[in-house]
């Protein structure tokens, strides 16, 4: 009998269907609208600013919206899209076809990746447009401050947007890993938010591990430091100047680190899902 090999075409089909399903969900649209409102409304928030340069403040709001709503979207969408297949028993029909379970998991992740790419791409473009427009106005108003031309590097804005996306992709893979063995969607979502917090604080565990004297402290902090990725590695949004570009070597290392965690999370999700009773 002709063997059924792992097929990227089937992965693409499952991913495409996942994106279509997610894009029609109210939750996705709600997060997009809220994030867009925040980016566009940042101009009005700046009245509360105490000394942060205006463009810096606008960028903060934009990337803040991307990180906050993007994380919420990734966690809820990943868990929901996975459990809707299980609970509505569409997974039953799908996996009764000649489809590998790995194709199902990878397809779901690629779908979430597509969804978050759409989200981050949309917000990055909008944020760049807001910054460009406002920077142009400030250049007219304060020509002395822009003697060297524009101060915002839009390549840095795009890079920071890409880093946000990579971070969300890792989060998606980890939520998918949790969902692959979790019994309920609620558990997967709550754990997803916990993972998000731990990943942001992972560097503290790393520092604690490096300094810990006790065996227990070392073991506990090592477990956290090794099991969870350090999301602060992706924090590029603090600078918008081209001079602060971290260098291609640094970029390659951070990107490969992120993709490594995506691969690890996905492989383990496949491992956990392989024998799951549908």
């Amino acid at each position: 009998m002709r063997p059924v090999r792992f097929s990227l075409a089937r992965v693409g089909l499952i991913a495409g269907n996942t994106v279509r399903e997610a894009a029609r969900q109210r939750l996705f649209n709600l997060f997009v609208v809220l994030a867009l409102m925040l980016v566009l409304g940042a101009r009005w928030f700046r009245d509360f600013s105490f000394g942060a340069p205006e463009l810096r403040f606008l960028a903060d709001c934009g990337f803040g919206a991307m990180a906050f709503f993007g994380s919420a979207l990734t966690i809820t969408a990943t868990a929901q899209l996975f459990f809707s297949e299980i609970e509505n028993r569409t997974a039953l029909t799908l996996l009764a076809k000649p489809v590998w379970r790995a194709e199902f998991i990878v397809g779901k992740l690629v779908g979430v990746a597509g969804l978050t790419l759409l989200f981050c791409g949309l917000l990055t473009v909008l944020l760049a447009a807001v910054l460009w427009t406002r920077e142009g106005a400030l250049m007219q108003e304060f020509p002395d401050n822009f003697a060297q031309g524009r101060v915002v590097s839009y390549a840095m804005v795009a890079g920071a947007g890409a880093m946000q996306w990579l971070k969300l992709l890792i989060l998606g893979a980890l939520v998918l890993l949790v969902a692959s063995f979790a019994q309920t969607q609620t558990f997967a979502i709550v754990t997803g938010f916990l993972v998000l917090v731990i990943c942001h604080l992972q560097h503290l565990a790393l520092a604690a591990y490096e300094r810990s004297g006790s065996l227990f402290g070392m073991t506990a902090s090592a477990a956290i430091a090794w099991m969870f990725p350090n999301f602060q590695v992706f924090a590029w949004a603090d600078s918008l100047a081209a001079a602060d570009f971290p260098g291609w070597g640094q970029v390659a290392r951070v990107v490969s680190y992120g993709l490594g965690y995506v691969g690890l999370g996905t492989a383990l999700a496949v491992f956990c899902f392989r024998k799951r009773e549908i």
Partner: peptide
């Protein structure tokens, strides 16, 4: 997986 190629469910 091959077993499911000839099955409609």
């Amino acid at each position: 997986v091959e077993a499911r190629r000839e099955v409609g469910y």
